[in-house]
Design a protein around this nucleic acid. Sequence first.
DNA 1: ACCCAGGGCGTTG
DNA 2: CAACGCCATGGG
Length: 226
Amino acid sequence: MTEKNILVTIYAELSAAYGPQHWWPAETPLEVVVGAILTQNVAWKNVAMAIANLKKAGLLGVDRLAAAPLPELGALIRSTRYYNQKAERLKGFIDQLQTKYAGRLDNLFALELGALRQELLGLRGIGKETADSIILYAAHKPVFVVDAYTRRIFSRLGLLPAGAGYDQTQALFAGNLPVDVLLYQEYHALIVRLGNRVCLARQPLCLHCPLASRCPQLPVYEKNPV
DNA sequence: ACCCAGGGCGTTG
DNA sequence: CAACGCCATGGG
């Protein structure tokens, strides 16, 4: 069996076990961008609170965000942990959007994938994962999103070396999956779902995990819920 | 009282 | 480039 088949098969198994994940949980592309920045190193539950606050305050628009005072913005997204940094990064993105793209995400997303990625990576507070999340879930262009779960899980499965970095991990998926936006979107969502539910407390894959039979270590953590 | 979440950046060695 | 420290909330 080839590597390609393994990655496709794992996707099929996760998909069968968990079903459609409905990612990204957002109503507009701007909401995806905001969520992508806010979710850095924070549980999504905390981000959801912040997004709800922004919506309630009517700030979830380019012009409204641009006009919002930094302290007010920070207060609304307080639940996302590094709220001062994130408030600045949010406004930094909006500022660039207004100056270079007439405040329209459409214009920014009209760039070629590679150019768009470089543009996003040039902004403060947007690294590879955040950039790729925006590209995949807001701009709907085919980049595979890599996060900590992806590296941890696929290293343990023996498909990546232990210390694999972002680019190497991304290359594994990019090189062995058909180029398909919806597939990339769903695969990453399923990986996060798996990481959230099963790989608790940095524990390896365990019983009740759809991939348990593939885990070379097979430690048994019975307390872990499905 | 701990532990850790859907990272990124600047500073060291 | 790896290994730090920093940022600084909320739920389990």
